[in-house]
């Protein structure tokens, strides 16, 4: 469905010198520098896949999404979305894709969302009957109820975001780009959005690319992740394999019925945290069963959980490792 090969996007930007004198001089003669927002990435995405784009701020995630959606021209490389060159922005292509941006909205501010839906129906040339059916489904799935008839400015952020998603899906896009769709939403609304996005993917078979700083979004939605850092691809594979590669150790959460010495815990594994009634240990996969039986035999354990390391930590470690590798490369 999506194929990206050797994609580069370089921007030529004006170097802003510090100080008034240099700023005045820059009015007459400017120095430019090239920012490599995306620097040679390749990947393929099959129809119906849900893929998470991960990377720190400025990694090139949004630039890549904008190239895939036809908003930016690539500097180099070949990009195809369902056989189309996105930058050609053909009508047939634009009718198949949609970009949802959590920080920007397309809803008409002073009018009810129903008016934006009607406008999108006309723009996307959606037949009336299909529009009515889609809207009915979206209203039910997103529990929109009367929201669609209230002026957008009177809706809460979460309500607005649900309507934004509905507006984006009126034409039933085959490819959906989601850029931080849950940003600023409370936890329960984040869950509603995640459930809906997953259901939309499962029911329509739409291909989905998601960027989010909330790792829970990625964990809940994306079996596959593509990690981009400084414009380069640093990982492409399953989320589980990423966790295994970066943090193969398991987290053991012990609920304790009485006090324990730190030393006792350190003999089982690395102590991540210790507080009254609860201890968290990091234990290598190989020594897990032994550590568990020793804990159960020697400590006042009332309950225990075994988990993977939190995704935030995994990703943060991945970024710091690739930064360290780049620095080492630069020094060599």
């Amino acid at each position: 469905m999506i194929s990206v090969h050797g994609l580069k996007k370089h921007f030529r930007v004006h170097k802003r010198p510090p100080g008034l004198k240099a700023a005045v001089a820059s009015l007459f003669s400017r120095e430019y520098t090239t920012v490599k927002a995306v620097d040679g990435i390749s990947f393929d995405i099959r129809p119906g896949e849900r893929v998470g784009f991960l990377g720190p701020n400025g990694a090139g995630k949004t630039t890549t999404l904008k190239i895939l959606s036809g908003l930016l021209y690539p500097s180099e490389g070949d990009v195809r979305v369902d056989g189309h060159l996105p930058q050609a922005r053909e009508e047939a292509f634009l009718k198949k894709v949609m970009l949802v941006m959590g920080q920007k909205q397309q809803l008409l501010w002073d009018l009810p969302p129903a008016e934006t839906f009607e406008l999108n129906r006309a723009v996307y040339d959606v037949p009336r009957e299909q529009f009515r059916k889609t809207l009915e489904e979206l209203t039910q799935l997103l529990e929109l109820g009367d929201l669609v008839n209230k002026p957008t400015r009177q809706l809460s952020l979460g309500e607005r975001m649900k309507c934004e998603l509905a507006a984006a899906l009126i034409h039933r896009p085959k490819v959906l780009f989601l850029d931080e769709p849950t940003i600023g939403l409370d936890v329960s609304m984040q869950m509603v959005m995640r459930d809906f996005i997953k259901r939309y993917n499962e029911e329509t078979g739409a291909t989905l690319i998601l960027t989010s700083h909330y790792m829970d979004d990625v964990a809940a939605l994306c079996p596959r992740v593509v990690v981009i850092d400084k414009g380069q691809l640093s990982y492409d594979g399953s989320l589980d394999a990423l966790v295994q590669r970066v943090r193969p150790e398991k987290r053991v959460v012990l609920h304790l019925g009485g006090p324990v010495e730190r030393q006792q815990l350190e003999s089982l594994g690395q102590v991540v945290s210790l507080e009254a009634g609860k201890a968290v240990l990091q234990v290598p996969q190989a020594g897990l069963s032994q550590a568990l039986s020793r804990a159960l035999a020697g400590l006042p354990v009332t309950d225990l959980n075994v988990e993977n390391a939190p995704l935030e930590e995994v990703v943060s470690e991945l970024f710091s490792r690739s930064r360290a590798a780049r620095e080492a490369e630069a020094q060599a």
Binding site: L71, L94, M98, K104, V123
Partner: peptide, 18 residues
Amino acid sequence: RKGTLDFVLMKPADAQFL
């Protein structure tokens, strides 16, 4: 200024008209 022109450009109709 706000970057919302992206929504207009993603629509399958002439952007100047829209």
